[in-house]
Design a protein around this nucleic acid. Structure first.
Lengths: 213, 213
DNA sequence: CCTACCGATCGGTAGG
DNA sequence: CCTACCGATCGGTAGG
């Protein structure tokens, strides 16, 4: 993509093919906006089920026009997964401060992950539904597995430090925590069930303190 | 299917096309065994991605032979979902004894659901990955939603009875609990991470008592 | 005569 | 607009 200075700031906005201002050339989709629409369609029907024809219908442009922005259907998937994984890994890195207690890092991971899940919901949703049917998907699942391993380490650390009970499975516990968090993409509605912070509070209370009154 | 008395009890067992004994006619797949193999393939590649050709390869019989047992690809899906939903609803009904406290029923639901998830893992896995792309899938998702509503009611009841803390979201909590349970199909390995009872213990402890030491 | 299965082929649709 | 492939269906065959 050539670097193009912004020479105008018009608002063109067709409902079928929206643009964002400050670009020259024919108004229409940029790569990012196109991908975000495609990801929504993927999540509605499933990646495999979604045909290029369905994408073109939802975008309001022809199939061949899509190939102006991307080289393949899989490239759209790849870029969306990149975005989800980068965000998740960034949230993990911000919390993993050596020296702080495992249980505090664990709480930070729960809060940070929920924040990313909500903020980047369509991209993370796509990631969490992968089956590993192609090299692109397998690579993404491998990156996801590294996140799982980090949570496993934190649980172990917190147990060693005496902050987490010992009478629970060190194998199952991290998976159950992550499973609980990841389920959010299946039911959370941004306006419906409280703010993201309230959601994170509920999750942290349940995991660390339990629900019993 | 006509009722046929058992006149013999042979074990024929080809690896490609296994049979169960006590039937007449050519040995090979019966409907149930065929469906169970298909469900495994669906779970590996995704229902939509799986072609009849892929099924025939895994079964070791021709595509057209599959149509001897079932009328369509969707009929295989439908029967598998029926099995998963019947098992889940049965487990719910066994626990929902009027008169007992909500928190006890909630614990029973967690244990019962985990039991069904593990025992019927392939069928429940298929159910939990549906996107609602067809009437059959939509009907299954509707039955699933009734289970969700039951858990919502139990959480509310337990809060009203004073057994569950009030400073958590009544909307999010049931979803987080179910999300945690349902995640099991994504990572549990029957021999790997302890027995089913240990898994249920860990889940119940986490949800009700919390992980903090 | 039953059940299980085969090869060939249809109309239709996918990605590119 | 092309090639490859899909689900589905047919008449017919074979083991028990």
């Amino acid at each position: 993509m050539p670097t193009v200075p912004a020479t105008q700031d018009q608002e063109t906005g067709t409902s079928a093919a929206p643009s964002n201002g400050a670009r020259r050339g024919r108004p229409g989709y940029d790569r990012e906006k196109l991908i975000s629409v495609c990801v929504q369609v993927f999540n509605e029907y499933g990646y495999d089920t979604t045909s290029m024809g369905m994408l073109s219908n939802h975008l309001g442009i022809s199939k061949s026009a899509i190939y102006h922005h991307v080289n393949s259907k899989e490239e759209i998937l790849e870029e969306a997964l990149l975005r989800a994984l980068d965000s998740l890994e960034k949230a993990m890195d911000e919390v993993r401060t050596p020296g702080s207690r495992g249980i505090d890092q664990l709480e930070g991971v729960i809060r940070g992950s929920i924040r990313v899940l909500v903020d980047q919901m369509p991209y993370v949703t796509l990631l969490l539904r992968l089956r590993g049917n192609s090299p692109v998907e397998i690579a993404a699942l491998e990156r996801r597995r590294r996140i799982t391993r980090t949570v496993e380490e934190l649980v172990r650390q917190a147990q060693d430090e005496g902050d987490l009970r010992e009478d629970i499975s060190g194998k199952s516990t991290p998976r159950l925590i992550l499973g609980m968090i990841n389920s959010i993409v299946d039911w959370y509605q941004p306006g419906g069930s409280g703010t993201t912070d309230q959601l994170a509070d509920t999750a942290v209370k349940m995991v660390l303190e339990g629900l019993r009154a």
